[in-house]
Amino acid sequence: MALARKAHAAGVHIVLITMDAGSSIAKLAEVTVVLPGASPKLRSVSAVTSIQPMGSAFEQMCLLTCDAMILSLMQQMGESSESMFPRHADLE
């Protein structure tokens, strides 16, 4: 949370993917994508339940959501896996 506050104070645009729309970071975010899910960390009672431990279900849904967003952006921007590959690991 401290890093999000620091970023927000510096004028950074915060986009959050979460299950908790009422979280402290969600209050700072300009865009919040709320995924349904069950977690012991959620403050509100959710109708969604899971037998998976901790945040496993959220992590899986987050992966699928982010993949779908990337595929959509690739289509809109005329990109392919081949055209993006040279830029993929430029920070490693």
Rank of each mutant, 00 (worst) to 15 (best):
M1T: 13
M1H: 07
A2V: 14
L3P: 02
L3N: 10
A4F: 14
R5D: 13
R5A: 04
R5N: 11
R5F: 10
A7M: 15
A7H: 13
A7L: 15
H8C: 10
A9W: 01
A9G: 10
A9R: 12
A10N: 14
G11K: 10
H13S: 08
H13Q: 09
I14F: 06
I14D: 04
I14V: 14
I14L: 15
V15K: 10
V15E: 12
I17V: 12
I17Q: 01
D20I: 04
D20S: 10
D20R: 06
A21C: 04
G22F: 03
S24V: 02
S24R: 07
I25G: 00
A26L: 03
A26M: 02
A26S: 13
A26T: 03
K27A: 09
K27D: 11
E30N: 04
E30W: 03
E30K: 09
T32F: 03
V33F: 01
V33I: 12
V33W: 01
V34N: 02
L35Q: 03
L35S: 02
P36G: 05
A38I: 00
S39K: 00
S39P: 00
S39M: 04
P40A: 11
P40G: 09
K41Y: 09
L42P: 02
R43K: 14
S44R: 12
V45K: 11
V45H: 09
V45W: 06
S46Q: 13
S46K: 06
S46F: 06
V48Y: 10
V48E: 15
V48A: 14
V48M: 07
T49K: 13
T49E: 15
T49C: 06
T49F: 08
S50T: 13
I51E: 07
I51T: 09
Q52D: 04
P53C: 05
P53K: 05
P53D: 04
M54E: 09
G55P: 02
S56Q: 08
S56I: 08
E59I: 00
E59F: 03
Q60D: 05
Q60L: 08
C62V: 00
C62S: 03
L64V: 05
L64Q: 03
C66N: 05
C66W: 01
M69L: 15
M69S: 00
M69F: 10
M69G: 01
I70F: 04
I70Y: 00
I70A: 07
L71I: 08
L71E: 11
L73P: 02
L73N: 04
M74D: 11
Q75Y: 06
Q75V: 12
Q76W: 12
Q76E: 15
M77L: 15
G78K: 04
E79N: 08
S80H: 13
S80A: 07
S81Y: 14
E82L: 15
E82T: 10
S83L: 08
S83E: 06
S83Y: 11
S83R: 12
S83M: 09
M84S: 05
M84R: 08
F85M: 14
F85R: 15
P86H: 10
H88F: 11
A89T: 14
A89R: 15
D90T: 15
D90R: 10
D90Y: 09
D90E: 12
L91A: 07
L91P: 00
